[in-house]
Amino acid sequence: MASGPTLLAKIWSSRKAYLFLSPLFLGLILFCYYPPVSGIYHSFFDWDSVGKAVYVGLDNYRELFRDRVFLDSIPTAFLILVPRLIIGIVVPLIAAEMIFNVRQKRLQSAYRVLVLLPIVAPGVVGLLIWKNIYDPTSGLLVALLRGTGLIAPDRVIDWLGSADLIIPSIVFMGFPWIGGTSVLIYMAGLMNISSEVIESSELDGAGLLRRIWHIDLPHLMGQVRFFLIFGIIGGLQDFGIQIVLTSGGPGYSTYVPAYYMYIEAFTAGRMGYATTIGTVMFAAIFVLSLIAYRGMKTETN
C-alpha cells in the first residue's frame, strides 16, 4: 500500500493548480456539464416550459421514432450536410494551395487578408444578402441568368420557395465558399511542410498535382480531420437558414432535426420532447464523428 503519497496528499500538494483552475471549473460545472446531463435526464420526462416535469419513461422516444416530421427531417439534414461538408473541406484547400503557390510575398499577404474580409459582415447579414440574391423577380441570380440568355427575360424562379430547388439553393449559398479562416488554417499546415521536402520533390520532377497529392495532402490530414469532425458536429446542428430564410419550408422540405427541436421547445413548449430530440442527435453526432475519426485515422497510417 504505502507506495508513494496518498491520494489526499497528492491532491493537497496540487492545491495551487486547483486554485488556478477553480474559476474555469466553477463555470463549467454549472453551465457546461449540468445542461447536457439535465437534457438526457429530462428526455424521460414530460417537461413543460414552466419547468414542471412528469416522468414518462420511454414515451418520448417511442413517439419520436414514429414521428413523421422527425423521421423525414433526418434525410434532409444529410442532403444539406454532405455537400456542404465536402465543399467546406475541399474549396478552402484549393484556395490555400493557390495562395500558397503565389510567388510574390506582398501579393500573397494581400490575398490572405482579402480572403478573411467577409467575416466583417455578421452571418445574419450574409444570409439576408443571399435572400436578396435569390429574389425570384429581381435577385442577382435571375438577373445573371436573364442577362446571359440562359432563361427568358421575364422568367421568375422561386429559388427558396420551391421544394425541388430549395436544397440545391441552400448548398449553393455562400458561393464561392471560400471560408477565410479555413484557408489560413490550411496555409499554416502547408507552411509547416519543410521546404526541403518540397524542393526535393521538385527535383524528382514531381508536377504540381503530384506534389499536392503525395506531399501536401498527407501533411494536411490533421486539418482535414479537424474540419470533418467539427463540420459534422456543427453542420448537423445548424438551423440558421431555417430560422432566417425558410422557416422549415416550403412545406416541411427544409425541416432538420435541430430545427424541429427548436420548434418543439420554443413554439410548442414541449421541453421534454425537445430534449429527447437533442439526446438522439447527441448520440448520432457522437457515433458519426467517432466513425469519421477512426476512418480517417486508419487511412493516414
Binding site: 454549472l30 453551465f31 457546461c32 449540468y34 445542461p35 447536457p36 439535465s38 437534457g39 438526457i40 429530462h42 417537461w47 419547468g51 458536429i233 448537423l236 446542428q237 432535426p257 435541430a258 427541436m261 427548436y262 421547445a265 421541453m271 425537445a274 430534449t275 430530440i277 437533442g278 439526446t279 442527435m281 447527441f282 453526432i285
Partner: peptide, 13 residues
C-alpha cells in the same frame, strides 16, 4: 457536446 443537447436545458437553467 453538441449545442443541440444543451440548448433547451441551458435555457431552462
Amino acid at each position: 457536446i453538441p449545442g443541440a443537447l444543451t440548448l433547451v436545458p441551458g435555457y431552462m437553467l
